[in-house]
Amino acid sequence: MAAVTAMSGAADVDLATRHTYGDPEAFEEVYERFGALIYGIARRMSGDATLAEDLSQEILIRVFRHLGSFRGKSSLKTWIYRIAINSCRSRLGRRARRGRSWVDIEDDTFDAMPAPTEATDARLIRREASEVLEAALSRLPVAFREAVVLRDIHDLPYEEIAKILGVRIGTVRSRIARGRDRLRLAVAANDPEVPR
């Protein structure tokens, strides 16, 4: 396993070196491998398709500019996650400062959402539940949201999340737990299957 990691680490550094020497295929390869991941992070963090597209471009351009400085201290994937999270944090922070602040999850936003009627079929209920959950996620405080997104959607281990976020593992555990709990409360208001 360690040998495989070392090999992929060497391949990542090689990719960065090729990019530094002007090989256009190097960045194309990066895009092929991580483009969807970057968009996924941007989409879940922003909760908005248009903003996610713009954010993804910004992240990819930052990756392009800084790829030459990648030294292989972490995996390229972790390095890209870090750039993506930092870009999201910075952009979402700016939006929040401009007045589009993140509403606390326990406020009236969720109470105002209509509960599904009996006439709706199972698929519709599932879709509505997803929408409620996505809305709740997009309103979580950014620190909780990034921890929950990385753990529960991107399925990353706690140690890697700590590296990406630049915080201690204890902080990651606490943020994940509190983020999930806030989501639980928000979703429970509209979904009888989720206990309060």
Partner: peptide, 22 residues
């Protein structure tokens, strides 16, 4: 409740990057 939230998050429909992003 936590388990259900985690399950729902994992089941969220996968988002696809727009084809023109690259």
């Amino acid at each position: 409740g936590l388990a259900r939230v985690r399950g729902r998050l994992a089941d969220l429909p996968e988002v696809t990057a727009p084809a023109h992003l690259g």
